[in-house]
Design a protein around this nucleic acid. Structure first.
Lengths: 109, 109
DNA sequence: GCATATATGTAAGTAATTTAGGTATGATAA
DNA sequence: TTATCATACCTAAATTACTTACATATATGC
């Protein structure tokens, strides 16, 4: 079966970077936020989320520190680095470029 | 390195199905057509193209027969099956759904 | 006779997911 | 009080699509 898929492959980094570009958030909250904002269309599973966060941190696009949530629990908060902001810009441009191109094919073919 | 990527992962089937939904085409022509229509943004390499065509044929969404091209060469022409038309419809809907959702995250976050 | 564009294909490697686990704590209900 | 749920972190195996790099063959133009 072709997977129903809750994500378009390769867009998760963009979604995460964009989400924490507003304000720092911990992983769980990032996933919730993406789901909410997308009207429950995009589902970020934990198996995709945490590896992505570690990947992004390793590349220096986000950084983390432990903080208390509003509900009084320890959680790892992630924020954009300067390099991350640049990367976000790149990924936004790339997404526009490619999704527009797909739109062209769909409408023109 | 994050790949520059000439395709959004998972969209190639959609692009192929849509392209031959206008009229049957052989593999090489499909790739050329996608590239042209997308203003050279989307590049379908042969290593992605042929396995995708075989995959789609195996799933019964396209069928093929050898014909002569306008340039007088033998080539394998692919056309949509009835099941393929249904699949194309599904994939179009899925693309709209997911790309809109990403748009929401980008604009709202 | 040789290079180039057309045309088909395969194979190894890579990377992002899915699926399926596991651990731990604070809050809520029985 | 103890059981359960939502929150919060994590990893590993498997899947899959794609990239990169080959290999082959024919028609056309020089």
């Amino acid at each position: 079966m072709s997977r129903p898929s809750d994500l378009i492959q390769g867009t998760l980094d963009l979604l995460i970077l964009r989400t924490i570009s507003i304000e720092p958030k911990h992983g769980w909250a990032i996933a919730k936020r993406i789901q909410q904002v997308s009207d429950d269309v995009l589902q970020v599973t934990q198996g995709a989320l945490y590896p992505a966060l570690h990947r992004l941190e390793q590349q220096g696009w986000i950084s983390s520190n432990w903080q208390l949530t509003d509900t009084g629990r320890e959680a790892k908060f992630y924020r954009l680095t300067k390099a991350g902001a640049a990367q976000l810009k790149k990924e936004l441009a790339q997404w526009e470029r490619l999704s527009n191109a797909i739109g062209l094919v769909i409408r023109t073919a």
